[in-house]
Computed example of a mutant assay.
Amino acid sequence: MRFMIIRKADADTEAGKAPDRELAATMIAYHEEMAKHLKILDGNGLKPTSTGARVHFQGGKPLVIDGPFAETKELIAGYTLVEADSLEQVLEWAKRWPAECDGGDGLILEVRPVYEIEDFGDAFDADLKAQSERIGLGGAKQPA
């Protein structure tokens, strides 16, 4: 099963504060150790919302809202996508997140299972499954 560990934003991440070398090394060491127990599929930090935008649909029409966005506790600062046997296994690693990464604002990590195409039952027939795989959706890798 695939799971996403979502690192919620805080004042430092929204300010675009880059980690120093010590903090970066701590995070790499944490992920390196995690990779010995879980399969890491992807992971990245996200730039502050001031560099992005939201597309809000109202009545079927898109409205673009430029960042920044005020409510940091609802924002995402980064993620790690892993493959594991259970939610409990991923939670054990989330609980080991380095304390140095707190930023003083009470770090929040959210762990959520990722839908697999099979979870949608009959909505994805063989043709839609194949099309999804061709374009890399549903965890499928695009052919090289």
Results as ranks from 00 to 15, higher is better:
Met1Leu: 06
Phe3Pro: 02
Met4Pro: 00
Ile6Ala: 01
Lys8His: 12
Lys8Met: 11
Ala11Arg: 14
Ala11His: 12
Asp12Val: 00
Asp12Phe: 00
Asp12Gly: 02
Ala15Ser: 09
Ala15Arg: 11
Lys17Trp: 01
Arg21Ser: 15
Glu22Phe: 06
Ala24Ser: 13
Ala25Arg: 12
Ala25Val: 05
Ala25Glu: 15
Ile28Trp: 15
Ala29Ile: 02
Ala29His: 05
His31Met: 15
His31Thr: 13
Glu32Gly: 15
Glu32Val: 10
Glu33Phe: 09
Ala35Arg: 14
Lys36Glu: 15
Leu38Val: 11
Ile40Glu: 08
Leu41Phe: 08
Leu41Gly: 08
Leu41Met: 14
Asp42Glu: 12
Gly43Ala: 11
Gly43Glu: 03
Gly43Leu: 05
Asn44Ala: 13
Asn44Cys: 11
Leu46Arg: 04
Leu46Asn: 05
Ser50Tyr: 05
Ser50Val: 06
Ser50Trp: 02
Ala53Thr: 05
Ala53Cys: 05
Ala53Val: 03
Arg54Tyr: 06
Gly59Val: 00
Gly60Ala: 06
Lys61Pro: 02
Ile65His: 14
Asp66Pro: 11
Pro68Gly: 01
Phe69Tyr: 12
Thr72His: 09
Lys73His: 09
Lys73Val: 06
Lys73Ala: 09
Glu74Trp: 01
Ala77Ser: 05
Gly78Gln: 06
Gly78Ser: 05
Gly78Glu: 04
Tyr79Ile: 01
Thr80Glu: 03
Thr80Ile: 06
Leu81Gln: 01
Val82Ala: 03
Glu83Lys: 05
Asp85Trp: 09
Ser86Ala: 06
Ser86Trp: 01
Leu87Val: 03
Leu87Ile: 04
Glu88Gln: 08
Val90Phe: 00
Val90Tyr: 00
Leu91Ser: 08
Glu92Thr: 04
Glu92Ala: 12
Ala94Phe: 10
Trp97His: 03
Pro98Asp: 06
Ala99Ser: 14
Glu100Gly: 09
Gly103Asp: 11
Gly104Val: 04
Asp105Gln: 12
Asp105Met: 04
Asp105Pro: 01
Leu107Gly: 03
Leu107His: 08
Leu107Arg: 14
Leu107Ala: 13
Ile108Gln: 13
Glu110His: 03
Pro113Glu: 07
Val114Pro: 03
Asp119Cys: 06
Asp119Phe: 00
Asp119Lys: 05
Phe120Gly: 11
Gly121Ile: 03
Asp122Lys: 13
Ala123Phe: 13
Phe124Lys: 07
Asp125Met: 08
Ala126Phe: 07
Glu133Ile: 10
Gly136Leu: 09
Gly136Ser: 09
Gly139Met: 02
Ala140Lys: 05
Lys141Cys: 00
Gln142Ser: 06
Ala144Asp: 12
Ala144Trp: 00
